[in-house]
Write a protein that binds this DNA or RNA. Structure first.
Lengths: 213, 213
DNA sequence: TTGCAGCACTAAACACTGTTCATTATATTT
DNA sequence: AAATATAATGAACAGTGTTTAGTGCTGCAA
């Protein structure tokens, strides 16, 4: 059955062709300004073709959302080498913030925008048994932080006692700074981008020193 | 000059007619689903009329954004009565989070969305002398938090030493939780809305206790 | 080899969106 | 009453996401 295999391969190649074009355009111009028509034009296909490979624009961008999570997760996992969990937590924080500042469009899709998360909700409603790859990287990333925080607690390095609660607010803390910066809300403080960047990294250290036992 | 006055009054009334309709529709269906055409239809005018009173959709929604800030600020200022600045800070946090959870659409416009903030950037570029009412409520709100935190420091109630830095990350902390919740990112934790709400308020207290000297 | 089924693909349309502008209707002033 | 200023609009422009009917090609069975 060589033909069926080739067809499947071609289908995957087409999916990637669309995905690559969409990703490239999205990283340059953002979600809103990347239209299905523009993507189609770029790959020299009709707009309708895209709908043969992705249910809608949301699903297409959810695929990009996942690529973003893979990138972030792989960067975070480099901290596995760090033995001290508190130092590891700090490094995860630095990597997370650096990812947000260097890839604001990815970050937007992953943690700020409403759009591609609707795909998850729909999938979750249909495939009620369990969640497969759909939410996989997000959960793995969160679990990684939670694991690190649990280790900090076991070694009595931090004050907090509830790993889930602590992970939740440590995440919220860095996300708050990243998202307020990306969405320009820090301009109330009348600082330039460089000053804000420094403040954010300073804040991370101050937070960790408060968390420390 | 009674006619000129009446005309001015009528202009203001028309502005409010548009604003009220837009606010109502926006709070029900959100920004994206509230179209200029729908607003026009609701008030029984042509879409073009709206553009005689607001430059574009962004400016219209920035006006709503300001109303949101007035609401939040007036609620925050009820804490002026609280003498202990640390207790006041806690109450500001509770009010902020409750505002976000009860008025997610307002919160979205004020702190998450990219859209209406573009109006500020444009205004800021043109009226280069100073920023008038345009950013007023946002700055006042931030200043109010900063003032409270300064008082905490003066009375040696908290560990931190830089009022601006501390205000920035305290704000980021609560904003992070509010925005991750509003944009459904907390569903990685597989909790229901009530549990999340409790966690958020618990996190606020834990953060304040860490901040405490 | 032919004929048919299935497939990838597309042109065109649908129902929207924000925004602009020439034109009309109304109100005010001369 | 005529001229002017102003308010409001119909219609169009340029775009959006998405659906559908139809075309032409590919692969397989007769």
């Amino acid at each position: 059955m060589g033909i069926a295999e080739r067809k499947e391969r071609e289908k995957q190649e087409m999916r990637e062709l669309i995905l690559d074009a969409a990703t490239q355009m999205f990283l340059e111009d953002g979600y809103d300004k990347t239209s299905v028509r523009n993507i189609a034009e770029k790959i020299e296909y009709s707009p309708a073709t895209i709908y043969l490979y992705f249910k809608d624009k949301d699903e297409l961008f959810f695929a990009i959302h996942e690529i973003g999570f893979q990138k972030l997760l792989s960067q975070m996992e480099t901290t596995r080498a760090i033995i001290n969990p508190l130092e590891r937590l700090r490094q995860i924080g630095v990597i997370y913030l650096e990812f947000a500042l260097k890839n604001p469009e990815y970050y937007d899709l992953m943690f700020i925008m409403r759009a591609p998360i609707n795909s998850i909700k729909e999938k979750h409603a249909l495939e009620h048994q369990k969640e497969p790859a759909c939410w996989y990287y997000g959960e793995t990333s969160f679990a990684f932080v939670q694991q690190t925080i649990s280790e900090c607690m076991e070694q009595q390095l931090i004050k907090a006692e509830n790993p889930m609660l602590t992970s939740m607010y440590v995440w919220s803390f860095v996300h708050g700074m990243a998202s307020l910066h990306i969405r320009d809300r820090f301009l109330v403080m009348d600082l330039d981008s460089e000053q804000i960047r420094n403040m954010i990294l300073l804040a991370l250290d101050e937070m960790l020193s408060m968390l420390k036992k």
